[in-house]
Design a protein around this nucleic acid. Structure first.
Lengths: 220, 220
DNA sequence: ATCCGCCTCCGCCGGACGGGGGAGAGGTTC
DNA sequence: GAACCTCTCCCCCGTCCGGCGGAGGCGGAT
């Protein structure tokens, strides 16, 4: 096997010790070459732009710009961008999903051993074939859906209004909701009107749609 | 570096040539040991149960029991089960998501080169740290949710009725839908009535809910 | 003590909705 | 050709919905 061009790696992590450790591990391999480091997300973007590495190991938690944003920026602004491996501490870190959305090519736990690290770098550097972790599995299985932005109106609903909206989203009429909540129909009408006003919708159907889109129903 | 115990691998693929090729690639590595093969999903389950490998390369499409079911069975019935890497041909294969749900530890494309293959096996054999592919990215981003069972009524809707339902699910009134579809309001009423009948719902709100629950909207 | 938000209710009104019919035109299937 | 489905449109009618304005009670905030 001949490896004329080693894999060029950039490390982005705000802790110097982490960078040093990673560099030590990676440089021990003849086919890996750590060509640059960055301590912030912004720095990572400019370093990558300049050095054009094959792979970036990107910490999620960094000052100024976090790893996710940096990833987005790199992938958006460079043509032929590097593969970006997002590094995180916990498997169930919510960043995992963000990393996925941002376009990260891979995902690595900090507690991964040296062996796994170098193999992950090699793998991500030269293939479309990839793997996925327990975190992603639970992500996909449990909340299964992205939580994009909790729309402002959700917080503005009063308890009663949430309750009414939930019943609306089950397809109940005002009269049914009234019976269920043991109040008068007029009361339900008031709550419904409030819900429509706060959600910026004009009828119950649109309100229910908004509830679904917002992941308001149990999902959140 | 000492590697006292090589990684024990079982191959499950219905095509002999594929198994042979994989065996050749993997056996060339001193730390990998192909200990068994299977040509069907059912066979894979029993072979794995007997040989207790560290890693299984599992084809998705196999006679009798497919790779997904086999994966489920293996993970459900064995304690301390092997890591299972699901092998597929296309990145956007819908099996990818099923594999994820079934508990596969990894995912590999058939067009992956030998290098990627052995590295993937090593990686999956000894770590929690993993990577994920473009397929998963689109999967997570686009349909993002599991498709449990396409309710019977979906198939019974005529083209026009689907169209109307889609508009209903955007919160439009009959009049608006009529304008949009360039037909009379009475026509839309007819279609809406048909949709309500076929979905077994009593008003447009319930119909929209049914559409959402069925993943009828764009997702399918 | 006062104000404000929340919950509870009232009446009135117009419009949208859904149910029940029916009917004609075009296409497919048998 | 007959039966059938789909799409198109029409009528009437009763109900539900949403907008309007108003009101009383209750509790927390200042």
């Amino acid at each position: 096997m001949n490896r004329p061009a080693p894999i060029r790696v950039v490390l982005a992590d705000d802790e110097r010790m982490v960078r040093t450790a990673l560099r030590a591990i990676l440089c021990a391999e003849p086919d890996l070459d750590v060509v640059g480091e960055a301590a912030t997300g912004a720095e990572a973007v400019s370093v990558v732009r300049e050095l054009r590495p094959d792979v970036v190991l990107m910490d999620v938690r960094m000052p100024e710009t976090d790893g996710i944003r940096a990833t987005e920026q790199i992938l958006a602004t460079l043509d032929d961008p590097p593969r970006i491996v997002v590094v995180t501490t916990f498997e169930n870190d919510s960043y995992v999903y963000d990393a996925l959305r941002a376009g990260a090519a891979g995902f690595l736990l900090k507690r991964a051993d040296a062996d796994a690290l170098v193999q992950a770098v090699r793998l991500v550097a030269r293939s479309d074939s990839l793997l996925f972790p327990a975190a992603l599995r639970t992500l996909a299985a449990e909340h299964a859906r992205a939580r994009p932005a909790p729309p402002a109106w959700v917080a503005k609903l009063t308890g009663r209004e949430r309750e009414v909206l939930r019943h609306m989203a089950r397809g109940l009429t005002n009269a049914e909701i009234a019976r269920l909540m043991e109040v008068g129909p007029a009361t339900v009408k008031s709550h419904v009107a409030a819900v429509l006003a706060k959600t910026g919708t004009r009828d119950r159907t649109q309100a229910v749609i908004a509830a679904y889109e917002a992941g308001f129903l149990n999902g959140g």
